[in-house]
Design a binder for these strands. Structure first.
Lengths: 113, 113
DNA sequence: CATTGACACCTAGCAATTCTAGGCATACTT
DNA sequence: AAGTATGCCTAGAATTGCTAGGTGTCAATG
């Protein structure tokens, strides 16, 4: 996967993963790797700051949980986060469609009349 | 369209547009806007540096043309550019598929057996 | 003829975001 | 006691699109 291809799409991915239920950071990373068949194998230094940013934006809440003497920070989607996810989905759709149109479109683009 | 969604995908778009024939900078911008139905309305300050970068990378060649007293710089794909386009296309496919898998995938991701 | 707008090019620095590279702490195993 | 896995964190580097400014020609408008 090329350099910074996910620029601007990472929020979508993280929100989508958390939409299925609360998870802690490591679990988010695992889930991304799993769902994407290893295409997204993100370093912690990439994911943690995103979680913090989303929490600051009110899209997530976090809670410390103690599991076998180890502390975990579990993140959960807020209503605002769910709304943001919907927006991001729509945005992705539009973006992907536009890219498709550009790269598949021959010279005179088919106008949508 | 959200902030910097095209990060890392802009080369693909520009190469794809030039794959249909040589064009000058403004025409590339117009074509992107047209093919994408206004989704990609890129400022000159975004596109020109990309053209320069791609030329420096040997994926494009340029040629000055005089049209009605106005000078244009016309860009043309090289063989290397065509190869790069193929790579970028493949990369996009992979990326888009991975995103799809993540955002559509429910809790236990559907394993591809 | 001066001004405005469209065409057409350019670059320096800003801003946003991912990644690198380190660090910390606990538990379990050797 | 040391090493490995789990789990968290952050500062700064690197990348790259965008802002904001600049140049110059041509055609239309006042």
């Amino acid at each position: 996967m090329k350099g910074q291809a996910l620029k601007g799409h990472l929020d979508l991915l993280v929100l989508a993963v958390l939409a299925d239920g609360p998870k802690h950071g490591y679990a988010v990373i695992d889930e991304l790797r799993g769902r994407s068949a290893d295409a997204f194998d993100l370093p912690e230094g990439t994911v943690y700051p995103v979680l913090h940013r989303l929490e600051k934006a009110g899209q997530l809440t976090s809670e410390w949980v103690e599991v076998g003497g180890r502390r975990r920070r579990t993140y959960r989607l807020t209503d605002r986060g769910r709304a943001a996810l919907a927006d991001e989905r729509a945005g992705w759709q539009k973006f992907a469609d536009a890219v498709s149109a550009v790269i598949s479109g021959g010279a005179p683009w088919p106008n949508p009349t």
